[in-house]
Amino acid sequence: MSSSLDQLENQLETFIENVRQIGIFVSDFQPQGQQVLNQKLQNLITNMQDIDKLRNAVQEVHVPLEVFEYIDGGRNPQLYTKDCMEKALTKNEQVNGRIDAYKRFKAMLLVELSHVFPNEMTRYRAVREELS
């Protein structure tokens, strides 16, 4: 997978470089340069064909749609990764706190129930032990 991604990256870089060269070429166009421009345009199409050939090799790569919002907004997509990681950590801490709270609640409930219903709780504990 990584090799196909590397290949795709190389192809994209070649394509971008070709586009850049065409950009420079046409910004101050010389009459004798038409033939070169035509050749570069054909190269551009060949580049696109090469990129298209790699399509099947990267089918398994999943990109979150939210990243496109960052890119379309002219923002660094690494900010998305950063936001995701911060959110994940916050959620992890929240769930951890919730689990902790439930554990404490269970312990307190068992203690209180044992005070109020001692016989039932003894039976309950016996049943639980049987089940586990």
């Binding site: 002219g74 923002r75 660094n76 997509p77 900010l79 950063k82 911060e86």
Partner: peptide, 16 residues
């Protein structure tokens, strides 16, 4: 995580 939160990530796409 440390890489992204430790240093300031530049906001613009051109920096990426």
């Amino acid at each position: 995580y440390n890489k992204f939160t430790g240093k300031k990530v530049r906001d613009s796409l051109s920096s990426f």
